[in-house]
């Protein structure tokens, strides 16, 4: 009873809270990093160096009036943010933070596929949010979003297949263990796949330069134009939680998860003094930093360019990568 119910429930509670807290601080981090990139200071008023801004923002959003437009489909309007956030949190069930079973909720043998399939559910939140608002800009945005997410999902999935070919397992723990055994992070074996997954990840989380569904200069607020208060906050949470998921996936598959750098060099063993989960979280935040950095640097793609990039560049390259990987696998 303890092992099957209480401990997993405890773990889930801890993890969900950890993710939500991480998200609020990620928002602060984004504001700070972008501010530094733009030679500003960012939030400075709430707490020392604006650290408490991470608390102030959620409190503000919770206390705000929650408006449902008169013409909106109220059930779907309420359901949409939930449908957007829940998959983003569910995914963490299979993300291992360390080698020990203590550090993950479940290590299922189709872990990677589980992540892909659950994140693909997240698109409903965006589509329904845009549709239920019964407003033109959100509808346009949600059309963009659904087309974008579906097409980039194909590219990412195709790429991940080539990774699965090299590891021979779909279990995330198994993938990291495979990297430890081969002594090299897969990012170095599969650099093309790394780039593809990263770009696809940017697109799937609607981040710059692929932030078309919420391109505020074109479609005002995108699919969440009509949302306010906590429901808006849920979309916000979902977006940032998805960013963490993508970073975690990239780290697990390509950057050795919780492994220290250079797992094959023995004399660097002192690096293992840091607990595994710190390595993992550190790497994840490094990637989150890259996400933010890109946002501060690049302009936004146009919808048709985004589509042609996805279909005419990423998917063919992903298939090519798959073929090359397969040939190598067979020949060597």
């Amino acid at each position: 009873m303890l092992d099957t119910v209480v401990i997993p429930l405890l773990k889930i509670a801890v993890l969900v809270n950890a993710v939500l807290v991480a998200v609020t601080f990620l928002v602060l981090m984004e504001r700070k990093v972008i501010a530094w990139a733009q030679s500003r200071l960012g939030p400075m008023r709430v707490g020392p160096y604006g650290i408490l801004q991470a608390l102030a923002d959620p409190i503000k959003l919770i206390l705000k009036e929650d408006i449902t437009p008169v013409k909106a489909d109220r059930y779907v309007f309420t359901l949409a943010p939930i449908m957007s956030l829940v998959p983003a949190l569910v995914v963490f069930a299979v993300v291992p933070f360390g080698p020990d079973p203590l550090y993950y909720i479940g290590d299922i043998n189709v872990g990677l596929l589980f992540i892909i399939s659950v994140t693909s559910i997240g698109v409903y939140g965006i589509i329904l949010g845009g549709w239920a608002s019964n407003s033109k800009y959100p509808l346009l945005a949600s059309l963009r979003a659904s087309a974008q997410l579906i097409s980039y999902e194909i590219a990412v999935t195709m790429t991940l297949v080539s990774v699965i070919l090299t590891t021979g397992t779909l279990s995330l723990v198994g993938i990291v263990e495979a990297q430890r055994e081969s002594g090299i992070w897969f990012g170095f074996i599969q650099p093309v796949a790394l780039v593809l997954v990263f770009i696809g990840g940017l697109a799937e989380t609607n981040r710059a330069p692929f932030d078309l569904p919420e391109a505020e200069t074109e479609l005002t607020g995108g699919f969440h134009t009509e949302y306010s208060g906590m429901r808006f906050a849920l979309f916000f949470l979902a977006e940032y939680a998805n960013m963490i998921v993508i970073s975690a996936v990239v780290v697990l598959i390509f950057f050795g998860g919780w492994l220290r750098p250079f797992p094959n060099i023995a004399w660097l063993g002192f690096l293992d003094l840091l607990p595994a989960w710190i390595w993992f979280v550190g790497k994840v935040f490094l990637f989150l930093y890259v996400f933010i950095w890109i946002r501060a640097t690049l302009p936004r793609y146009r919808y048709d360019q985004l589509m042609s990039l996805g279909w005419k560049v990423l998917i063919p390259v992903a298939i090519g990568n798959l073929v090359v990987t397969g040939v190598f696998k067979v020949v060597f």
């Binding site: 733009q38 500003r40 200069t217 640097t297 936004r300």
Partner: peptide
């Protein structure tokens, strides 16, 4: 112009 196309940073630089 840059911000409309999505490049946020240029706005702050130019305003500086």
């Amino acid at each position: 112009h840059a911000m409309d196309i999505g490049a946020l940073t240029v706005l702050l630089y130019a305003f500086r």
